[in-house]
Nucleic acid binder design. Structure first.
Lengths: 229, 229
DNA sequence: AGAGTCAGCTGCTCTAACCAACTGAGCTAG
DNA sequence: CTAGCTCAGTTGGTTAGAGCAGCTGACTCT
């Protein structure tokens, strides 16, 4: 399967080193010089391997300080998804729409499992987020952060940090591409109404209603996306 | 946000080059020497940037042949997820279980949308896959490929290639870790029965039944996972 | 005691040379 | 004439050594 080429093998050996030593995120790795002697390869090869691992989020490099085990976040996935979507968009594909539909499919599928099961504390937080949203809608446009926080808080109730990270990654990639490529142009009041409806539906425990609410929310974004294309 | 350091900047400039020239997957990139002159940096820096881009799947490097625009697949995500899960496992976390629950949450959410909407051609393919599964169950264990193909064919009906790739990526990551770390030990006959039930439920168009079938399938895997831990 | 400085670590970049994989043109043998 | 081989040229892979740049912590001077 792997070990084609030396650099690739070096990556594997550094990964193995992290596994074998049970290093948690943030722990220091050997210096470049040490890895060089440890693996018996040149400094350059070590650096190329580390660069690749850094791109995958496995390793974190701090200039003048050292190399550390990375946060293992979904950041690299966001990076890759974003580029893939932007590149596709400029080649005339509906890649942004496809990304949105991915989010829609996953989130409408998950919301039913969530109806009536969101902890009271999260409901309160969602309430205050919608309130802030309405506040922002009065003065201008809704901040992207508020929308992000709403979705993140909503799916936190599923109690799976990996799932939450993946959903947030999808959100990030979508919004990064969206703000870069197409005009925003959303009616803030409509946005608020839709988010409030999602919140109320989830609070009431009506799964079907919640699904409809999420579907309408995404349908609205989808419509605006299609119109601007 | 970015452009801290030169290497990072080089990556961005190569990405920009792909975007600006509208290069599709498989198209050749300038050679290392050309990039060197084009970007005004040393060969070493070019190579480190390319290595990072390769790790993100944006670029594909073929020794002695050239550098090309990558397939933009989810392969890097699989790599990252796999490592994250393995590392977590060895540090005593339930990372594999979390990955399985991610799949379960997403797939049970999607299956309802799929009930009664799978094209006849896909149903036929699923039928033959289950048949092969039953065949394999008679002689020994069910091949992993068959299971993978079943899930891939099933969600193909959602008609979103990005979504399909993400689901396959989750499958790949899970199975790579699973086969590396824990004993397989699944009853082939039970596996077959569960897959057939999913197929029949989807064919009948009964969304609730389909959801139950998928949930039971994952519940079974989850149970075995818990027992072996 | 506090602020400034400097030595030493670290990673970053460059240059120059050679190794290894692949392609394709040209040669050779059948 | 063609099938196969060889070899030169191109491209990426690896090594070596030198100097640059960011950060830390101890040391010094006020």
């Amino acid at each position: 399967m792997h070990s084609r080429g030396m650099a690739n093998g070096i990556q594997e050996r550094i990964k193995k080193l992290i596994i074998d030593r049970r290093l948690p995120s943030g722990d220091p790795l050997p210096t470049e010089t040490e890895l060089m002697e440890l693996l018996g390869v040149s400094r350059n090869s070590v650096r190329e391997a580390l660069k690749a691992l850094q791109a995958m989020g496995i390793v974190e490099i701090r200039h003048g300080f050292g190399t550390y085990v990375g946060p293992m976040s979904m950041a690299p996935m966001i990076e890759g998804l974003t580029f893939r979507t932007v590149a596709g968009h400029y080649r005339g594909e509906d890649s942004l729409l496809e990304l949105l539909e991915l989010r829609e499919a996953v989130e409408t599928g998950l919301i039913a499992r969530l109806a009536g099961r969101v902890p009271a504390s999260d409901l309160a937080e969602l309430e205050s987020l919608v309130a802030r949203m309405e506040d922002e809608a009065g003065t201008g446009a809704v901040h992207a952060d508020t929308d992000r926080a709403f979705h993140a808080t909503l799916y936190r109730g599923l109690d799976n940090t990996l799932l939450s990270e993946v959903l947030e990654a999808f959100w990030d990639a979508f919004h990064r591409v969206r703000t870069d490529l197409v005009a925003p142009g959303a009616d803030p009041k409509v946005i608020c109404r839709q988010h409030r409806e999602i919140l109320e539906a989830v609070r009431s425990g009506d799964a079907a209603r919640a699904e409809d609410a999420v579907r309408e929310h995404f349908g609205d974004i989808r419509g605006r996306l299609r119109r601007s294309a």
